[in-house]
Amino acid sequence: MRYAQGGGLTAAGRAARERVRLQAVERFERGEKNREIAAALRVSERSVERWRRAWREQGEMGLLSAGSPGRPKLSAAQVDRLERELERGPLVHGWADQRWTLARVKTLIGRLFHVSYTVEGTWQLLKRHGWSWQQPARRAIERDDEAVELWKKEVWPRVRAPRRRSGPGSSFRTRPGNR
Rank of each mutant, 00 (worst) to 15 (best):
Glu87Gly: 12
Tyr3His: 15
Ala76Ile: 10
Ser132Gly: 13
Trp95Ser: 05
Leu9Asn: 11
Glu83Pro: 00
Ala4Thr: 09
Leu108Lys: 11
Gly67Ala: 06
Asp144Asn: 15
Ala39Phe: 03
Arg27Asp: 01
Arg99Ser: 07
Ser75Phe: 07
Ala77Trp: 12
Pro168Ser: 12
Gln98Glu: 14
Val92Phe: 02
Ala76Asn: 08
Tyr3Thr: 14
Arg104Met: 08
Gly7Pro: 00
Trp131Ala: 04
Leu126Ala: 05
Ser171Met: 08
Arg138Met: 10
Val159Leu: 15
Glu120Met: 11
Glu154Ile: 12
Gly89Leu: 08
Val115Gln: 11
Leu108Ala: 05
Leu91Phe: 02
Asp97Ala: 03
Phe113Glu: 00
Gly121Ile: 04
Val20Arg: 15
Ala15Leu: 14
Ser65Ile: 09
Asn34Val: 14
Leu63Pro: 04
Arg71Pro: 01
Glu29Pro: 00
Gly6Ile: 05
Leu102Thr: 08
Ser166Cys: 14
Ala54His: 10
Pro136Tyr: 07
Arg42Ser: 06
Val79Lys: 09
Leu41Lys: 12
Arg128Asn: 11
Ala39Gly: 05
Arg165Ile: 06
Val105Lys: 06
Arg42Met: 03
Ser44Glu: 07
Glu154Phe: 06
Arg163Met: 06
Gln124Glu: 05
Trp55Asp: 02
Arg21Tyr: 03
Gly59Tyr: 09
Gly13Ser: 04
Lys127Tyr: 11
Gln5Asn: 13
Phe172Asp: 12
Pro176Phe: 13
Val92Gly: 01
Leu150Met: 11
Ala39Ser: 11
Arg19His: 06
Arg88Phe: 03
Ala137Lys: 14
Gly167Met: 09
Val105Thr: 13
Arg52Gly: 05
Leu22Thr: 02
Asp145Lys: 11
Trp156Asp: 02
Gly70Tyr: 09
Gly177Cys: 12
Gly7Tyr: 06
Asp97Cys: 07
Leu150Val: 13
Ala66Glu: 06
Ala76Gln: 13
Ser170Gly: 04
Gln98Thr: 11
Arg17Pro: 00
Thr107Lys: 13
Leu41Cys: 01
Leu125Thr: 02
Gly6Ala: 05
Arg81Thr: 13
Gln124Cys: 03
Leu9Cys: 07
Gly31Arg: 09
Glu32Ser: 04
Arg143Thr: 05
Trp133Val: 07
Glu49Ala: 14
Leu150Pro: 00
